[in-house]
Design a protein around this nucleic acid. Structure first.
Lengths: 307, 307
DNA sequence: GATCCCCATCGGATCTGACGATGATGATGG
DNA sequence: CCATCATCATCGTCAGATCCGATGGGGATC
């Protein structure tokens, strides 16, 4: 059949002839007889119904039509080349997609440069980013809806089934609106905090566990969304803990105040927190995952992907 | 030979199978036996060295690799489609390039919308724009270095060998810097103007013709570049005639003043001038040229090119 | 004018890619 | 649970597409 009869090979021959300057030379470069080159060009011209080369001059010269069509032909061949590269990378184990899971309190701005570099280095890998509402850790990736390849969360309490790498540190502070009763108080001990409504991030449907991390108050409201928590705090509904980077503007503008809380419930490990990227030990990362992990870890110039 | 062995047909079959949902259905749609489909897919998988479909499930399902490669395959086919379209248009007589010649005093801003629309409508036609330094007309396109397809110049004195179309009108005014002696004078007759240096646009090497158009002064400086003329006038070197649109800002800011010249050398035809687009009668325009001419002439919604 | 290189053409060898039949397997329905 | 239908892989076969090598005409070069 092949009534279509445009062939990649014809495009190859076409640009080869243009680059070689003659049919014979093109044949030599392509390891084919000159008659095969003539044949291929004839077929292509037959398809296009236009002369691509002017044979009246000694060395065949591109006709205006040929000149106009040449870039498009090159473009097609480039695309095919990219197809080949992508296929080879997939065969070598490159992920076709990468699933990233971020803790809700992780400042995305910290990760953005690495992610931008990733998009540049692995354009063919679809990155999906999920937000893990549970505030402080991912005890088990089985707890989330679908297994992620890389988790970026706060660095404590990750199970040993995960391989961790520290990628940064952030500071959490307790804040409330200036209108909140706690805003005027002095140093705040656990007893005082207990008496005021705390806004806590939580997983959607999960019932509160027996012992929870980072909860000081007797009464808590649960929100699954960071923006919602932020809004509630701004509205003066209660107090809560947020990354300092997130509330810097609010503190400067006086929309929130920093509560001088004493350590409660822990030894301060929940104030200054390391950010880690982790993946399951039993699901090793592919090239793109390893690259991103290294980049997140600060290896600024990890080797680019093979091309 | 064909060690390359990636075939456009394989890509066709690939996306056909994806769209049809099964090998058999794809075969039906492509008017080919099912075995041919299987063969083509096998060949493609052999090239890619990866399974593209998962055959363990009943209807073959795209493998992750297949899913990742599918967009690239589609892209290639799209490019080939564009190649076909372009080839067909060329065969129908579409120009592969269009040469536009503008008089130096023609305000390009007036033409820009039409040119932008052209770039959009005929992306494959290379537009080349040359500036014709000679100020007021193009007596004969033979005078310029290479023949242009379309000339946009002031509308008088074009020879009858050219087909003209009025595309607008502009006003020329005489200006000088405020520091110039003429700036203070009242109505300026030809006698007064004659005594002051005039800045005139001219063709590069050509010796001044015996009778010139738009020259009033006894002494003139010749510049080939509009920007140079503009700069000389701003510097107070002399006086000269420019399109009002070009000097509106300068007039408002007081960097130039409008000279109340009386008509000199003509009956005012050189003040209010029609802009024409023209082409040689013996070299008819192709589709793109006709389209652009119509658009320049104000036919806002000329029919788009056949695709 | 001799030589070299170029391209088109032709005949013959080769291999690709199409077809149709066959069999195995999953889905569907009574 | 069996009959039926659809799907896909495989195989043998064959036509035609494509390559090669040879040949000939015609410019370029000296």
């Amino acid at each position: 059949m092949m009534m279509d009869a445009l062939t990649l090979d014809q495009f190859h021959v076409f640009v080869a002839v243009v680059e070689a300057g003659s049919f014979s030379e093109a044949g030599r470069r392509l390891n084919r007889a000159q008659s095969a080159i003539t044949y291929a060009i004839q077929k292509l011209e037959e398809q296009v119904e236009t002369e691509l080369f002017d044979r009246t001059v000694y060395r065949p010269a591109l006709s205006p039509s040929g000149l106009a069509l040449l870039p498009q032909a090159r473009r097609i061949l480039d695309d095919v080349g990219r197809f080949r590269i992508q296929a080879r990378e997939i065969k070598r184990g490159l992920e076709t997609g990468l699933h990233l899971s971020l803790g809700a309190l992780v400042p995305v701005g910290l990760l953005a440069p690495a992610l931008a570099a990733f998009a540049d280095a692995y354009p063919s890998v679809r990155l999906r980013i999920g937000i893990q509402p549970f505030s402080l850790d991912v005890r088990d990736s089985a707890g989330s809806r679908e297994p992620a390849d890389i988790h970026v969360v706060f660095g404590m309490l990750l199970p040993d089934t995960m391989v961790k790498r520290v990628i940064g540190a952030i500071t959490l502070i307790d804040v409330a609106a200036p209108s909140h009763p706690l805003a005027l108080a002095g140093p705040l001990g656990a007893e005082t905090l207990r008496d005021h409504l705390q806004i806590v991030l939580t997983e959607g449907t999960k019932a509160p566990a027996d012992q929870e991390i980072g909860v000081a108050a007797a009464n808590t409201w649960r929100v699954t969304d960071l923006a919602a928590k932020h809004a509630l705090l701004l509205a003066g509904i209660g107090w809560g803990r947020l990354p300092d980077a997130l509330v810097a503007d609010d503190l400067a503008a006086g929309r929130l105040v920093h509560l001088p809380t004493e350590d409660w419930n822990d030894n301060g490990a929940l104030r200054h927190i390391t950010l880690v990227a982790a993946y399951r030990r039993d699901e090793p990362l592919g090239p793109a995952g390893r690259w991103l992990l290294a980049r997140l870890g600060g290896d600024a110039d990890t080797q680019p992907p093979v091309s």
